[in-house]
Simulated assay, not measured.
Amino acid sequence: MSADATAAERRRGVAGLNAVAKLVAALLIALPLVVTIDPVSAAVALVLELPLLLAAGLGWRRFWVRTTPLWLAAPAAAVTIALYGQRSGEEVFSWLFVHVSEGSLVLGLATLLRVLAIGLPAVVLFVTVDPTDLADGLAQILRLPARFVIGGLAGMRMLGLLADDWRALSLARRARGVADAGRIRRAAGMAFALFVLAIRRGSSLATAMEARAFGAPTPRTWARASRLAPADLLLMAAGLAISVTALGVALAVGAFHPIFGPA
């Protein structure tokens, strides 16, 4: 996908909102849902999240590419819980260490829905977040220490260099004739070399930032102002409404099952 197409996606729908609003909305959806492990609240949350996912401003191809790990991890977790989870109710199937019961099947279904209900909005909301916009919002809106925020931003910007460094190390070792055998040993050696290179680059970057007064105790100024608009508040309210409604429905039908409650 071209840079122009990616920038256009970031300006559409929810993608064009403040990065802090997306972060808060994702947390408001996720945190209340992790206190219970019932399928009702997760299913309700998934249904209510559909308008948010459709308004995220992502193309269908990019949506499926980005969320593929979730669609693979959720069924895998559900099957594992169903086969090896806590037994309750009538036993359905048993073989060696595998004991499938009605309770473990319900727990597996709840796990499947919960992974999707928590993971989908988090992935979709953060796909279009620019690291610089997020750093501006964290420092100006949430009032996090500027030194911490700028250091984190610098580290995130350096992550993109790791793939280039790995490729350069691979080519250099192959040119010296030390990359023809022993894949595991070669990968371990390259990983250690990449680790040392990252430490050296981080030290140089820290020294350069200190020399430019990035760590000064005086109040900082920012090139771009980051403020919450009414649409950002609406997004956060929607995230809170989704989780509250999901928990309310689970309580109303008697399906609420706190994770720290009695077995």
Rank of each mutant, 00 (worst) to 15 (best):
A117R: 05
A139F: 04
D4P: 14
P131S: 08
D38Y: 00
H257Y: 02
A146H: 04
I184L: 15
D38S: 01
L142K: 00
W222E: 12
R62L: 03
A175G: 12
A74I: 01
V149T: 05
M236T: 02
M209Q: 03
A263W: 05
Q86H: 15
V123C: 07
G89H: 11
L72E: 09
L112D: 10
V40N: 00
L162C: 11
V79N: 15
L17D: 05
R157L: 11
G182V: 13
V196K: 05
E91T: 06
V115I: 12
V178W: 07
D165L: 09
Y84C: 12
T80V: 12
T128H: 07
E49V: 09
T245Q: 04
A122E: 01
A82H: 05
I118D: 10
P230L: 04
H99V: 05
T111Q: 13
W71M: 01
L138W: 07
V100R: 08
A15G: 09
D38M: 01
L46M: 14
P219H: 10
G152Q: 04
P217L: 07
L233W: 06
G59P: 04
R11T: 05
M156D: 07
R12E: 10
G13H: 14
W71Y: 06
R185C: 06
M158Y: 06
L247A: 08
V35H: 00
R10N: 09
S243V: 01
S94E: 05
S88G: 14
A43K: 10
I259M: 00
L72I: 13
V253F: 01
G254F: 03
L54D: 03
L171P: 12
L125K: 03
R212T: 04
W166P: 02
I141T: 10
I199H: 02
L138N: 00
L83K: 12
A237T: 04
G177M: 02
G182N: 13
T207R: 08
P219E: 07
F260C: 15
A77N: 11
G59A: 07
A30D: 08
A154P: 00
L197A: 14
I150H: 15
P32F: 00
H257V: 06
G215F: 15
V47C: 12
F260E: 13
A191F: 15
A146W: 03
D133S: 02
R183N: 13
I184M: 13
G248N: 05
P145K: 13
A55M: 06
V100T: 03
A208P: 00
G16E: 09
G16C: 06
A146N: 04
T6F: 15
P219Q: 09
A175L: 07
F256Q: 05
G137E: 09
F192N: 14
T221R: 08
P121F: 03
S170E: 15
E102D: 07
I199K: 01
L46F: 14
A73H: 11
L105F: 11
F148W: 04
D232R: 06
E210M: 06
S203R: 13
L233I: 06
L83A: 11
L105D: 14
T218L: 06
W166N: 03
I259G: 01
R185F: 09
